[in-house]
Design a protein around this nucleic acid. Structure first.
Length: 729
DNA sequence: GTGCTGGCGAAAAAT
DNA sequence: TCGCCAGCAC
């Protein structure tokens, strides 16, 4: 079918049509915010399949998060049928690499079933190695070493090269740790996040048959958010598309916000020099925001260093002015948002349509405090992640050791967790033995009785640890399901019992988290077809390793009627009718640590641009006169980005102009506090747990606590001063 | 080896 | 403000 007749081109603007119908050769799509690039990507994919006879099997589409991958796959399926859509690879860089590595990594000498170390695991290992190598952690922190190594990997610099280039201190020490780190990762049969990309590139470079296989396999590649790819990813894409050159990259240099982890717009620049024949298509028509919002955002980005290729425009009309609110402090800022959110709702805006973006995760705290007090429902995306919580990592570490006994980092994590009398000295002796004998840490544990310097008590403690693992392993081999395995882990280790005995609110939360982990395992099992034993465990561990913050939104979408909060970085790619951008003060946003670095400052500016362009109808920019930062009060001037928003677009409001929102909230609160007294037997309502009845009361004043039996959530202990609890009858 | 306490230092974004 | 670690008592 000739391109111009395809129904898949209907309803697209001319630039979008170009992008969809240019199916062969290199294509660069510069897609401004809200310019319908997801539409372009999905229609182009469907067009390839339906009108050009490309098998979905031959299409590789790289997205930034699992969430956007899922959405894209779903939308393509909607256009061409799910039988087709399901056969494509629509996935993130990291997941695509894992899929390739699962098949090919043994070529590099690894054993099958490798483990993926997250940033925390790799930090532990680096700290341990740095200590062994005599690095003074006061002068050179493990974190700094970790980030140096990670940066090197982002640029495909291996430790040999790093070593050669190392001029003096601290590079020489970093090089030593880098080498030891790679050695230990290899022995543990583990890869860190960066290695997933690096090792895939290495495989494609070293083994022609592998390269040819994947080049043939994927006849058409598409990469989204190209401005946020790093050099390693650039080379990966270059290798994979090298045979046929059918590569479309989509990005916007003005939205590049991941420079700190190696992303560089050099990739986009190089794309045009590497492919002089590349078709360049600019999408500058915005379908998301009002002209006022676009003008405000354009004002900010115009002062940036990145040369602009197009200025966004829309025919949506002017819309409401951008509201700039000058708060007294961060409490007032939060109170203003709460008030405004209520007002918007009475005008028919759902809480779901409202989002708050901040520069740092810590800023959510005050917002949450105030929202809880005024009873405004909210959800926070990101922050301390579920899979980074201590109890989750502990239980997962057991699971990981069962899947890969060579995983030293995990073994060391759990050897004394829960406490079984194995202290630092014992661990050191075991480690020493392992290194001398050239065996893994767990092998040293098995050989505890021959380890020098271990007391009889230590030997028996270590032996019982090994026995415990063996017991779990035997059970696993009897085709135990992963959810059951998780339960066995917390039973046999006594982990759950210990938490239960604690009876603090914190411990209760941890218990809940562990149960949540079990239900995640249940879901994974249902989704992946219910593998048991080791196979099921492998599938589970894989699925919990590469989750991104935005993936939380999928679960959160089920919970309606809440204002959403997240960092500006997490907000990338999303859109909301109403957006509050908070903390617009020099030192908060832009962040202090960027103020003296022009490149970083420019990235902050792009971040502001990203944040502002998420808004569809209304944009609020707030800043506080003073706020508590780092334990003291700081007076920060309004953000320099505010100066760049054209004055005529702005509706100025502030504490001095209409009274402080914080004060009004405090007044309401005083009234409510005075008016509410709880009694045993009272019916109550909680924003999260729903209906319940008070079973007991204890403590006084600030410390007053209620024990409440909730209909759906069982018994909870709540601090009355903080709990979003109201009386009902 | 464990558990508590006080002092100190750090404090950005994330697959 | 918080989290981590050293130092100390048990």
């Amino acid at each position: 079918m000739p391109d111009h007749d395809s129904p898949l081109l209907e309803g697209l603007n001319p630039a979008q049509r170009d992008a969809v119908s240019t199916v062969d050769g290199p294509v660069l799509v510069v897609a401004g915010a809200g310019s319908g690039k997801t539409r372009v990507l999905t229609h182009r994919t469907a067009h390839l399949i339906r009108d050009h006879g490309v098998s979905p099997f031959e299409i590789l589409a790289i997205t930034f998060t699992n969430k956007s991958a899922g959405e894209m796959a779903q939308r393509v399926s909607g256009l061409v049928g799910s039988a087709m859509g399901d056969r494509m690879w629509v996935t993130t860089f990291h997941k695509a690499c894992v899929r390739i590595l699962r098949r090919e990594l043994t070529r590099l000498g690894y054993r099958s079933g490798f483990t993926i170390y997250d940033a925390q695991d790799s930090n532990r290992l680096i700290a341990q190695l740095a200590k062994q190598l005599g690095v003074d952690d006061k002068r050179l922190a493990p974190r700094a070493i970790q980030s140096a190594i990670s940066n090197a990997k982002d640029e495909l610099i291996d430790f040999e090269t790093y070593k050669q280039r190392a001029g003096g201190w601290p590079e020489i020490q970093i090089a030593e740790v880098y080498e030891a780190y790679q050695d230990r990762l290899f022995k543990a049969n583990a890869l860190d996040f960066d290695d997933l990309i690096v090792k895939t590139v290495e495989l494609l470079q070293l083994f022609d048959p592998v390269l040819e296989h994947y080049q043939r396999r994927f006849s058409h590649l598409m990469v989204d958010e190209y401005q946020d790819t790093n050099r390693a990813q650039y080379h990966l894409v270059d290798l994979l598309s090298g045979g046929h050159g059918n590569l479309m990259v989509v990005g916007d240099p003005q939205q590049g916000i991941y420079g700190f982890r190696g992303a560089t717009i050099k990739n986009i620049v190089d794309f045009e020099t590497d492919h002089p024949d590349a078709e360049v298509i600019v999408l500058d028509r915005n379908y998301r925001s009002t002209q006022t919002i676009l003008d405000a955002a354009n004002g900010v980005i115009a002062r940036g260093a990145v040369k602009r290729r197009a200025e966004l425009w829309t025919d949506r009309g002017q819309g409401a002015a951008v509201v700039r609110y000058h708060a007294d402090d961060e409490h007032d800022e939060a109170a203003f948002i709460a008030e405004e959110a209520e007002k918007l709702r009475s005008d028919g805006v759902d809480f779901d349509d409202i989002a708050i973006f901040y520069r740092t995760n810590a800023q959510s705290r005050v917002l949450e405090d105030v929202f809880i007090r005024v009873g405004l429902p909210y959800r926070v995306i990101g922050g301390v992640r579920f899979y980074e919580r201590k109890e989750i990592k502990d239980v997962l570490a057991y699971a990981r050791v069962l899947a890969n006994p060579d995983d030293d980092v995990s073994v060391r994590r759990i050897i004394n967790m829960p406490r079984r009398g194995i202290g630092d000295r014992t661990i050191e002796a075991l480690d020493w033995h392992a290194r001398r004998e050239g065996v893994t840490f767990l092998a040293a544990c098995r050989d505890a009785e021959h380890v020098q310097g271990l007391a009889a008590r230590a030997v028996s403690a270590v032996t019982s640890f090994v026995d415990l693992l063996d017991l779990l392993r035997t059970e696993l081999q009897q085709e135990l399901s992963t959810p059951d395995l998780i339960e066995r882990i917390w039973d046999h280790t006594g982990y759950m019992q210990e938490l239960h005995a604690d009876r603090t609110i914190e411990a209760l939360g941890r218990e809940e988290n562990l149960r949540e982990l079990k239900s995640v395992a249940q879901e994974v099992q249902e989704r992946t077809g219910g593998g048991l034993g080791e196979a099921g465990l492998g599938a589970f561990l894989e699925s919990v390793t590469l989750v991104s913050d935005q993936d939380q939104l999928e679960d959160a979408e089920a919970e309606e009627g809440r204002v959403t909060m997240m960092t500006l970085h997490t907000a990338k790619g999303l859109e909301y009718p109403v957006v509050f951008l908070v903390g617009l003060e020099d030192g908060v946003f832009p962040h202090v640590r960027s103020l003296s670095e022009p490149l970083q400052l420019d990235e902050e500016r792009r971040l502001a641009y990203v944040g502002m362009t998420r808004a569809q109808d209304r944009l609020y920019l707030t800043h506080a006169d003073h706020r508590t930062l780092w334990g003291g009060t700081s007076f920060n001037p309004p953000s320099r980005f505010l100066e760049d928003v054209p004055e005529e677009l702005v509706d100025l409001r502030g504490a001095s102009r209409g009274g402080s929102a914080a004060k009004r909230v405090r007044d309401i609160e005083m009234l409510e506090m005075g008016g509410t007294e709880f009694h045993v037997g009272d019916g109550v309502m909680h924003t999260k747990f729903g209906e319940g009845r008070i079973a007991a009361l204890s403590g006084e004043g600030e410390k007053a606590e209620a024990t409440v039996d909730f209909l759906d959530h069982g018994r909870k202990h709540l601090m009355l001063a903080y709990a979003p609890l109201v009386k009902v009858d």
